[in-house]
C-alpha cells in the first residue's frame, strides 16, 4: 500500500473529508438501521431510531439493499437545501451510506450549467424570431429547413480583451461570473437594437442586424448597439476599478453588405448562420480596433447618415484584405498600425 507522510495524509483528509461535514448510516441487509454518526443534523437527518430505515431517511427509498452494488449520487438536495454527495457501498455484511457536503461543487457546476443552458435557450429564441420574420416575408416557408438567403445585413463583431489571461489565474466560477457580467450588458445592447447574437466563442461575439424588423437602417442600429456596448463596458470598468478588481477592454468592428444568412442544421440542432465578406471584414475590423474604439467600413458609414458625426476616416490598413479598405473610427484619425 502506498505510504504517504503524515502532513500529506492530514492535508488530504482535511480537504477531501473533514471540511465536508461527513456523516454516515449503517444499514443491515434487511433494511434495519444499525448505527449512525457524524454531522447528520446538517443534512436534516435527526431523531433516528434503531430499526427499519423505512421512512426515517426518505431519500433512501428504493436504494437499499445494495446487494453488492456501489452507488454514487452527486449533488443530492433535499428540502433542507444543502447539497450532498451520497456514496453507498457494502462492507462487513452491511450497507453503508456516506454523506459529504457538496455545496462548493454544486455552486461551481450551477454557474457553468446555467450559463450554458441560458445561452442555448437564447439562441433558440433568436431562431424562432427569425422564422417568424421570414414566414411573414415568404408565403409558405418550409418549417424546419429555411434555406440560406442573401440579405443586406450589418455584422457587429466585438471582443473582450484580457479575459483569457485572467481566466488562467482564476477559478472557473470567478471567470464565468465576470464574463457573464460583461456579456449580459453586451447582449442586452444588441437585443435592444434589434440585433441577433449569431456566435459566441471565447471572448468574441458576433451579431447580425437587418434580420429582424426594425425602425431604422441596420447600420444605424448596429452602430447604436456598438456605442451602447462601449458605454456599458466603461461603466462596469469604473465600478470594478473602484473595487480594485481587474477590468477588460473591448474593441468593435462593424461591416455591411450582402450576406448569406439562414438557419443551419436540422430540427435537433439548429444554429444561425451568416457567411460572407461582411462577416470577415467585421471580424478583421474588430481585431484592428483599439480598446474602446469602433471601426466601421465604408458601406456602414454611407448608410448610417445619422451616425456619421461619431466617426472620421482613418488611414489604417487591414492586413487580411488585399484590396485597400476605407475605414472610419470613433477615435478620430490615428496612424497606420
Amino acid at each position: 500500500m502506498l505510504t504517504l507522510p503524515a502532513p500529506i495524509l492530514n492535508y488530504l483528509l482535511k480537504t477531501t473529508f473533514v471540511d465536508r461535514a461527513p456523516a454516515y448510516l449503517c444499514v443491515s441487509q434487511e433494511g434495519h438501521l444499525i448505527h449512525w454518526g457524524g454531522h447528520l443534523s446538517e443534512y436534516g437527518i435527526s431523531d433516528l431510531q434503531p430499526g427499519s430505515i423505512g421512512t426515517q431517511v426518505f431519500f433512501l427509498e428504493g436504494l437499499l439493499p445494495l446487494n453488492g452494488a456501489e452507488l454514487f449520487l452527486p449533488c443530492l438536495k433535499t428540502d433542507i437545501g444543502r447539497s450532498v454527495d451520497v456514496y453507498l457501498f457494502s462492507a462487513e455484511s452491511c450497507d453503508w451510506v456516506l454523506l459529504l457536503d457538496a455545496t462548493a461543487d454544486e455552486q461551481q457546476r450551477e454557474l457553468l450549467q446555467q450559463y450554458r443552458n441560458q445561452l442555448s435557450l437564447l439562441q433558440k429564441d433568436s431562431i424562432r424570431q427569425i422564422e417568424r420574420s421570414l414566414r411573414s416575408s415568404h408565403p409558405s416557408p418550409p418549417r424546419f429547413t429555411l434555406p440560406l438567403e442573401r440579405k443586406n445585413l450589418t455584422i457587429l463583431a466585438a471582443e473582450l480583451r484580457g479575459l483569457m489571461s485572467f481566466s488562467e489565474q482564476q477559478t472557473p466560477d470567478a471567470v464565468f461570473r465576470v464574463f457573464n457580467l460583461y456579456l449580459r450588458t453586451i447582449i442586452q445592447a444588441i437585443a435592444t437594437e434589434a440585433g441577433l447574437v449569431d456566435r459566441l466563442l471565447g471572448e468574441a461575439i458576433t451579431a447580425c442586424f437587418g434580420v429582424l424588423p426594425a425602425t431604422s437602417p441596420a447600420p444605424t442600429h448596429a452602430i447604436q448597439a456598438g456605442l451602447k456596448i462601449l458605454t456599458a463596458v466603461q461603466q462596469i470598468n469604473h465600478l470594478r476599478q473602484a473595487r480594485q478588481q481587474p477590468t477588460f477592454e473591448i474593441g468593435i468592428g462593424i461591416a455591411s453588405g450582402s450576406t448569406a444568412f439562414g438557419i443551419l442544421g436540422d430540427r435537433r440542432h439548429r444554429v444561425l448562420g451568416a457567411i460572407g465578406y461582411s462577416v470577415n471584414l467585421a471580424t478583421a475590423l474588430q481585431q484592428q480596433a483599439n480598446p474602446g474604439e469602433i471601426l466601421i467600413d465604408e458601406n456602414t458609414f454611407n448608410q448610417a447618415t445619422l451616425m456619421q458625426q461619431h466617426f472620421s476616416a482613418i488611414d489604417r490598413s487591414i492586413l487580411q484584405f488585399a484590396q485597400p479598405v476605407k475605414i472610419y473610427s470613433t477615435s478620430g484619425g490615428s496612424s497606420n498600425e
Binding site: F58, F59, L73, P74, K77, D79, E106, E110, Q114, N117
Partner: peptide, 22 residues
C-alpha cells in the same frame, strides 16, 4: 429559469383509493 444541479428530492403524501401513498 433556474437550472438543477444533480437532483432535488421532495415528497408528497397523497390519498388514493383510501390508501395513503408517499
Amino acid at each position: 429559469y433556474q437550472t438543477t444541479v444533480g437532483v432535488k428530492i421532495d415528497k408528497k403524501v397523497v390519498q388514493l383509493n383510501e390508501q395513503e401513498l408517499t
